[in-house]
């Protein structure tokens, strides 16, 4: 096996392992937001590793560019969905207050509510 093959194998192994660990985390963590933290892991590092492994094992520069685009697209889109899900989870009360050390958003929202003219939420 060549160096490139070893590199590809290690990348694939780590990427798949990250997926598995993230799945275990998503099963074990107690609330929505901590499950989201587990979910971002394979989406970012796992994807980078798997794509690096694929690029190394296919070994064509043309496809390497395409795989770079895959990672870039994921980097642009993953935060969008993470933010939307986190925000609506927060707004519909899926956050477990007992697990938070401090919650400055609720403090600020309460303060905004108690002032006479509330600022627009958007």
């Amino acid at each position: 096996m060549s160096v490139l093959d070893w590199f590809a194998s290690i990348c694939f192994f780590l990427g798949c392992a990250l997926n598995l660990i993230a799945a275990i985390g998503a099963l074990r963590f107690p609330d929505l937001l901590s499950r989201m933290h587990a979910a971002t892991k394979p989406q970012v590092l796992g994807l980078m590793l798997v794509m690096a492994g694929l690029a190394a094992s296919l070994g064509s520069s043309q496809l390497t560019w395409k795989l770079t685009i895959v990672v870039l697209f994921q980097f642009m889109t993953a935060p969008v969905s993470a933010h939307m899900v986190g925000r609506s989870g927060y707004r519909t009360g899926k956050v477990r207050e007992d697990l938070l050390v401090i919650d400055e958003l609720t403090e600020d929202l309460d303060r905004a509510k108690s002032t006479p003219i509330p600022p627009s939420s958007s």
Binding site: G15, C16, R35, P42, Q43, V85, K94
Partner: peptide, 16 residues
Amino acid sequence: LDRTIALDMLVGVVIA
């Protein structure tokens, strides 16, 4: 929402 993020992770597994 929990199901949504789990489905997102499933997409990640399918990609891998």
